[in-house]
Every structure is written in structure tokens, then in C-alpha cells.
Simulated scan of single mutants.
Amino acid sequence: MPMNFFGFKETTWTFLLVLIVLLLGIVVWLTLWVKGLLERRAFRRLMRRAKNLERQALQFLERQGFRCLQEQAERESFFLLNGRRIPFRVRVDYLLKRKGRRYIAEVKTGKQVESPENPSIRRQLLEYALLFAPCAVLFVDGEHEKVYEVSFPWLGSLPRTTRWMWIVCFSVGFLVGRWSRGW
């Protein structure tokens, strides 16, 4: 029977090698599991903090004279992709009212608090402005209790144009209907 180093047989070396690989696998699995656990805990803590700052932002807005009409207000819409209708939904933090004017508020906290000049935030606010028109858009820095009113001046003409288009279509439909019956 052949002998290996230190007087161990080949089967003993094979057993030790399998045992080492198995132990390394367990250590790697435990490391990944603990890392995932710590990341989930950190994420939950971050979400709790963000929710808390969001509530504080609402209290700040209420002190500024805003009245909350709805939290997590949603709008549904769609876009066309090669002629196929793709639905989507957007959600803003708050739908507010002050002095007869309606607002939507997007609260950012933590590392998300940047300027509305940031392209990704600007695009998000533009999407909200389009879908929640004619509401004004508020960007709220939940960390520092700052409120920025964001407006897209060229957007203001869209709802009026749409309104006139509906009035014209209704009027034409009414006149055609009356004309077809012989007045």
C-alpha cells in the first residue's frame, strides 16, 4: 500500500481534502448569509428613517399651510412600444392643497436629497407634472426641511389646449348630431 507524506494513506488525504473544501463552502455560505442579513437590516433601518423623515416633511408642509388630500397618490397611464400599449403607474408622496391651489409633493431623504437640477430627479418631476396636471410640483428636502416649487412653464399650455380641444369636439359633435336629425 503506497504511503503519502507524514505517513498518511491516500484515502486519508482525500478525506482531509473533501473536509477542507466542505468547511470552506460552509464558511463562504455563512459569510454570504450574514452579509445578506446585515444588508437587509441596514435597508430596513434606512426605510424606517426615510418614512419617519417623510412624515416629518408632511408636518412641516402642514405648518406651511398645506393640507394633505392624499398620501401616496397614484396615476395610471401608458405608452406605446412598437404599437403595443404598455401600462405604467406613478406614485407621488403627497397630494396637497393650499389657498385653493393643488400641489403634488415628492419628498427625498438621505443620499437621494439632491437638487431638482439633477437630471434623473428633473425627469421624475416632469413625469409627475405631466400626469398630475394641473397640480404644481413641490420638491421637498426631507433632511433640511426645504421646499422647492418646480414648474415647467411650457407645460401650462397643455391642459388649456386639451380643454379647448374637448370643448371644440363636443360642440362639433353636438352640431353634427343636431344637423343629422334635421334640427
Results as ranks from 00 to 15, higher is better:
107 V>N: 06
95 L>G: 01
129 A>H: 12
127 E>T: 10
67 R>H: 13
112 Q>M: 15
92 V>D: 06
72 Q>S: 13
90 V>C: 14
122 R>K: 15
90 V>D: 02
124 Q>I: 07
115 S>K: 10
62 E>T: 12
130 L>Y: 08
92 V>R: 02
91 R>Y: 00
132 F>R: 14
97 K>P: 00
98 R>P: 07
83 G>Y: 00
120 S>M: 03
133 A>W: 04
77 S>Y: 01
130 L>H: 06
114 E>R: 10
80 L>N: 00
113 V>N: 10
90 V>E: 08
94 Y>A: 13
104 I>V: 15
109 T>K: 08
116 P>W: 12
76 E>N: 08
116 P>S: 11
133 A>P: 01
115 S>P: 14
124 Q>C: 10
100 G>D: 06
113 V>Y: 09
111 K>Y: 13
104 I>K: 01
120 S>E: 13
88 F>D: 03
102 R>A: 02
101 R>T: 15
112 Q>F: 09
92 V>P: 07
94 Y>M: 13
110 G>F: 10
86 I>L: 05
85 R>G: 01
130 L>N: 06
111 K>P: 05
64 Q>G: 04
128 Y>L: 12
86 I>S: 07
113 V>W: 07
89 R>Y: 02
65 G>P: 09
76 E>W: 00
65 G>F: 03
72 Q>A: 14
94 Y>V: 11
71 E>I: 01
94 Y>K: 03
66 F>K: 09
133 A>F: 07
97 K>C: 02
94 Y>N: 04
62 E>F: 08
87 P>T: 01
133 A>G: 11
115 S>D: 11
110 G>L: 11
104 I>W: 11
79 F>K: 00
72 Q>N: 14
76 E>T: 02
69 L>E: 15
113 V>S: 08
83 G>P: 05
114 E>N: 08
103 Y>D: 05
112 Q>E: 13
85 R>L: 05
64 Q>C: 12
120 S>P: 01
102 R>K: 13
90 V>H: 09
74 E>K: 09
125 L>V: 05
114 E>Y: 00
129 A>V: 10
118 N>P: 04
121 I>E: 15
109 T>F: 11
96 L>I: 02
71 E>T: 13
71 E>G: 04
91 R>E: 01
100 G>C: 06
103 Y>K: 08
127 E>C: 09
73 A>K: 14
88 F>P: 03
108 K>W: 10
63 R>N: 10
101 R>Y: 02
77 S>K: 03
119 P>Q: 12
106 E>T: 09
124 Q>F: 03
62 E>D: 03
97 K>E: 13
105 A>S: 09
73 A>E: 14
69 L>K: 05
129 A>R: 09
118 N>W: 07
83 G>C: 06
110 G>V: 08
105 A>C: 04
80 L>P: 05
97 K>T: 11
104 I>N: 06
98 R>L: 09
86 I>V: 12
72 Q>F: 06
72 Q>T: 02
93 D>W: 05
77 S>V: 01
109 T>A: 10
117 E>R: 15
62 E>G: 07
116 P>Q: 12
109 T>Q: 10
74 E>F: 04
111 K>H: 08
91 R>S: 00
79 F>A: 00
107 V>F: 04
70 Q>E: 15
72 Q>D: 14
126 L>E: 03
87 P>Y: 00
106 E>D: 15
